[in-house]
Nucleic acid binder design. Sequence first.
DNA 1: CTTGTATTTAACCAATAGGTTATTTAACTT
DNA 2: AAGTTAAATAACCTATTGGTTAAATACAAG
Lengths: 110, 110
Amino acid sequence: MVMENLDAAYAALADPTRRAILARLALGEATVGEIAEPFLISGPAISRHLKVLEEAQLIARTRRGQQFVCRLNPEGLKSAQEWLDHYRAFWTGTFGRLESHLKKQEPDHG
Amino acid sequence: MVMENLDAAYAALADPTRRAILARLALGEATVGEIAEPFLISGPAISRHLKVLEEAQLIARTRRGQQFVCRLNPEGLKSAQEWLDHYRAFWTGTFGRLESHLKKQEPDHG
DNA sequence: CTTGTATTTAACCAATAGGTTATTTAACTT
DNA sequence: AAGTTAAATAACCTATTGGTTAAATACAAG
């Protein structure tokens, strides 16, 4: 329950470029160059997106010779998801209550 | 799969005040005044947080006389969660592969 | 119809974010 | 050692964000 990371994690997820990077990495690890390739923005821009993702603990980077290999770091994703999962109970609960209320209003014998 | 809302939804979730507001609303609907009460920041600041949450479709506001009642809007939350859920498969998959790999390396007869 | 109350909107300000190009760092190649 | 390549960092610019206080709006109540 590392609440302090949630700020960074959700802020990181708020950018579509970064979500695209995560989507790419979900398919497997990739070098910075490979990640950057489909994007129109500059290398430094990608580099900073990666930094944001890394600081949010959504990815990890390790050097391999001249290149840097990036991969998903499930930790950060997990805490982002846990927060939503926790509250999901409440709002699906709300749905549940609404549903049973509606069922009482209009039961199938009506 | 309303991808355009994800930007707004995650950006909204990135702020701890807004997450606290959602947490409050998970307990039940509340007026703007009730929501604002525990926070140190000004009314207008709260009002704008609520606007951000509303635009992200995470909450809905309806007028009740002089006050505005806020409640969770599960729609927006759902799409935020669906994105993570979708990718969860991949990274739990990664875990899974890692696990089976480790199991092969060190089976329980070792 | 004036006054009070709940809330939003306006105007402003400092800090942050996301982009750029230029420069630096570090490893590989010759 | 010099040059090339992969990537990060620096310096800079503009737009957005989150806060403020002051003013506007809309309903409620005397």
